[in-house]
Design a protein around this nucleic acid. Sequence first.
DNA 1: AGCACGCCGACT
DNA 2: GTCGGCGTGCTC
Length: 817
Amino acid sequence: MTSYAEVVVTLPVEGRFHYEVPPHLEGALEIGHRVLVPFGRRKVTGFVLALTHEVPAGLLDKVRPIAERLDREPALERDLLQLATFAADYYLATVGEVLHLALPPGYTAASKVRWTITSAGRHFLESGRDRLPNGAFLSTSMRRLLEASVKRAVVAKDAPAKAASDLESLGLVAKKVAIGARRVGGELTVVARTVGPDQAEPHLLRSPIRRAVYEALGSGERSVDELAAEIGRRQLSEALKRLEAEGIVAKKRVALSAVGRPHAPLEGPIISENAVPPALTEAQSRALRTIVDRFDAGQGGAFLLHGVTASGKTEVYLRAIAHALEKEKGAVVLVPEIALTPQLENRFRARFGDRVAVLHSALPDAERRARWRRLSSGEARIALGPRSAIWAPVQRLGIIVVDEEHDPSFKQSSDVRYNGRDLALVRAHQAKAIAILGSATPSLEAMHLVEQQRVARIRLAERVEGRPMPAVEVVDLVEERRAVKGAMRLLSRLLSDRLREVVSKKEQAILFLNRRGFNTVVYCDECTSPRRCPSCDVSLTFHKGSNTLACHYCGHVEPFESPCRSCKSLAMQPFGAGTERVVDAVVEAVPDARVLRLDRDVTERAGELDRTLEAFRSGRADVLVGTQMVAKGHDFPRVTLVGIVLADASLAFPDFRAAERTFQLLVQVSGRAGRADAPGRVVIQTLQRDHYALQAALHHDTERFLAVESEERRRAGYPPYARMALVRIESKDKGAVERAAADVRRALERNADGIKIRGPVPAPIARIRERHRRMLMVLSPTPARLNGVLRRAKIELKKKIPRRVDLIFDVDPVDLL
DNA sequence: AGCACGCCGACT
DNA sequence: GTCGGCGTGCTC
């Protein structure tokens, strides 16, 4: 009886495809195996989702055999396949797209048709003739193909299929092995093989090395090492290069699993100074007990570990994971940005050593694959990383931790717009594992789950070692302006005084402002029009160091001294403050202060982030000025003052979460103050001192904030009391965007089922990189209904919307931009 | 995603 | 007349 496999391809293509299991793979395929399958004219990577003995009627004549099984063991276990399927469904993506982002680089490449010029082709090109050997005319596309393949040896793109196949039939070019799909797990072994040996020209083989290579490969593929063993290493690579350039020989890459194990990966040094765990506070012990009891019951469960800053949440995670490891279970730990929290990595490595695989996006591809395999094999038991670590192939998963659960970076803002925190709950549930969401400032979503009793809240209300919460002072900038009679400084009198005290006591301060650059708006002094980006609908920011105006959305940069676009005037009036101006203000207020700045402009330079953090931690600066980067979980023991330069900056955001985001930032930044022996002090400057987000942050009153904010959301019908999705429509063609937006509205209405539709309206940034953007908001009482409406509308719209218009479905958006 | 097919304006 | 521009449909 013939066997068939249902395969999902790693392309944005809906559905499963059926393939015949060839005799040599009979009994050798399992669900989750990675396979190479013919797909149209190409071969692509796919994953086996099911094995059957029949295919739907009508498909029998279409079914083709699987070309290859790519690994000995299934690359994906069922739980991850299940999670990928869930995510594809929930976020309106295809399983293929999800797998593409879930797997390490190289696992999902598709093969490409590539062409190399043959020696006959080269001779023809050199002859300069314009008639082909068969008398036909040499078209420009043919000439382009030939010339390009001389230059680069291989042409993948812009090779028109017709020209290429005509040239191929004349023997002027040759198809090259599709490398892509074979590029798999890590360390690739290069194997050489011949491509059409009869094309070898005698003159090429006059070299004894080339002849030897040619003859050896005539009898079958060899790795470079094997060839070296047969004919010696001398001149071997030159010979291969030449033969390859001539189209006589081609490289092929073979999956590592078919060849052998990789070398042991480097993980960096294990820091062991902290290896003795600190004693737990009573609250920590209770929290741990609760979690461990639930773990031992074996049915899973979810917790919100709601602890104030410096209450020792990390220690609870570490202990809970240690318990899981004792029971032979593994763990996933999601953190907002691993690059910003090297201490966390160090603490995990100190406690668990090589059992931790730290995953970041900055790792080289081979290293990412190596760590992925270490988890997959069970050699490493704990995966620590940003949102994509939710896809880590941890064996016998026991615990998933999401640290700083409220952080927006868990939401992916392109491709498959998934939320790592939410998928953590799903994966934990599927695996009957424990989920721990940790935060000092829980999201409204997490609190909603607590209200629904789907998540149990555990409080850590006190800081460790009985440290006090920092004292918070507010500067009302409206009053300040009155008091100084218009001579407003960026740093108020109070904040300046506090800074001076700190510097004179040899302590440290952090100043926070959520905007980089020097000025955030530059107006023309003549016609008052602001300087705007030519490609985006945003104002340009003045950067003093480089004396330029820069767009923070597309990267456009122009000299500061260029004439106004409307009136050609050169007179400019800068307004608004960014971190660069704060640095100047600090120097002005405290001339002997040593100041460092930390924002994306700084971290763009490689290594600058670590250097800056290290310089500040080691006391080589007194003041650190930065954007939210300074708000993350850094531990700077000598920081006794935190200044928030303008608390309202984020309140003005056109987003229903502006208050929540502001509150979280204020609390997180404030939490950097007074972590060691010295008590901390926070100065908040604001124009809206009565705002509830500010008042709550002032009194460390998270409960109060959550109560007010959840009432606001409930009243407005916003998440978490409704489920939201955005549909964004983008294109360079403005008219097409408007027409498509109207189509989207109609399609949603037709499929509406007790849901609210708002829009289309221009997106808050209505144009980015010349692309016009409109959006609609969809609000639904339940996720299922939301999904249904979007799904039906999407199918309907696929036929209607022109291809140059992009439709983006953003389920559970974290911002509206 | 790619790749082919098919229908329209610009010239090897 | 062909070339190649892009809009449309399909891939087991």
